[in-house]
């Protein structure tokens, strides 16, 4: 009994000690387990609209496991992996996501067409109570940045909604009252989905439980995606602080939880039909970014030097006495 009692006391003491250390250090269990995505400081200009720029290859990446959303209908998605990179420049936070997708789906111009999309979710208030992963809860809302390939097509090429975007040879006599917004009710009631003048492919959303997702009309989150050889890369960018209700506020030395989701348009994925990650830690770090291997530039000056030296040596040898022309 004494031994058992001693063990129990020891375990409890350890637990209390650990809790004390975690509390003093500000470490939160939910965020401290496993993966940490570090957004180190950079002084360079971050290429937001060039997800395939060599800049991003040099930012250290972490793998984030995704699984099917199985909490609430409609369910969907599958088990696979996403890669994430992050940097900050003291003003803005930049997160790049990279995932494999054999087909880019950029159109929502027909009933059966769904867009590829990706989202980043933060607790609205960083480093306090961790909200429910799925859409948060009423007392702890979440801030979601959702990029859509279809929205990007609108920004890039103009609104892609008309029948001629789907059927270029379609012929229509005319549309009565075409200028009257009442006949496009989604637009008439300012549904952000119906907007034709989108300036960012990223929607900024706040949710406090299932079915409460609400768009913040201010386009504070910018971003751009590019698909190449079976892979999407998407960059999200937002000022660290925006001072808007429900939006995550970050400092240049801060950290929070972050979760990710990806939708595959080719598999009709939308809404809850998606692959999701758990919360992982995002460390907004003031330390300078440790530049990864990137492109190996260092041999170039070496070879130039070698070539010059060899040339010089050849000239010297060619002019040595006794080696003259016969």
């Amino acid at each position: 009994m004494n031994r058992v009692g001693g063990k129990t006391v020891a375990v409890m003491a350890l637990a209390v000690g650990l809790a004390g250390v975690l509390t003093l250090s500000g470490t939160r269990m939910a965020a401290s387990q496993g993966t940490v995505l570090t957004a180190a400081k950079t002084d360079r200009v971050v290429p937001v609209t060039e997800p395939w720029s060599s800049f991003w290859n040099r930012v250290p990446k972490v793998s984030i496991p995704l699984s099917a959303q199985q909490v609430t209908p409609p369910m969907g998605g599958h088990r696979w992996t996403l890669e994430a990179r992050a940097v900050q420049d003291g003003e803005r936070l930049y997160i790049e996501l990279e995932w494999a997708d054999p087909t880019p789906n950029r159109s929502v111009a027909a009933p059966q067409l769904f867009t590829d999309a990706a989202a980043i979710e933060f607790p609205s208030v960083a480093a306090t109570s961790v909200p429910a992963l799925c859409m948060g809860d009423p007392n702890a809302t979440v801030n979601i940045w959702q990029w859509k390939a279809a929205w990007q097509a609108d920004v890039h090429r103009g609104f892609q909604g008309g029948v001629r975007h789907r059927y270029p040879n379609a012929d229509v006599d005319g549309y009565p009252f075409h200028e009257d917004p009442a006949f496009s009710p989604g637009r008439y009631v300012d549904n952000p989905f119906s907007a034709t003048d989108r300036t960012s492919p990223v929607d900024n959303l706040v949710a406090g439980g299932f079915g409460t997702l609400t768009a913040d009309p201010a386009p504070v989150v910018q971003g751009w995606g590019a698909w190449r050889d079976g892979t999407w890369r998407v960059v999200f960018s937002r000022p660290l602080a925006v001072g808007r209700e429900g939006n995550v506020e970050l400092g240049p030395d801060d950290w929070t939880d972050v979760a990710f989701a990806v939708w595959d348009g080719a598999a009709d994925e939308r809404d809850g039909m998606k692959s999701v990650s758990s919360f992982v830690a995002l460390d907004v770090s003031p330390k300078p970014m440790p530049w990864g291997p990137g492109f190996p530039y260092w041999p170039a000056p070496f070879f130039v030097f070698l070539a010059l030296w060899a040339g010089f040596a050849w000239m010297v040898i060619g002019h040595l006495p006794g080696k003259g022309r016969t």
Binding site: P74, V108, P111, R166, P185, N191, F193, S194, D271
Partner: peptide, 24 residues
């Protein structure tokens, strides 16, 4: 509405319809 088309999918009479110009 956010244009998820779950109503289009699950109404057995297929009477909700998706409008591509308003995305809902």
């Amino acid at each position: 509405c956010r244009g998820y088309r779950k109503c289009v999918e699950q109404c057995p009479y297929k009477k909700p319809m998706y409008r591509a110009t308003t995305r809902v």
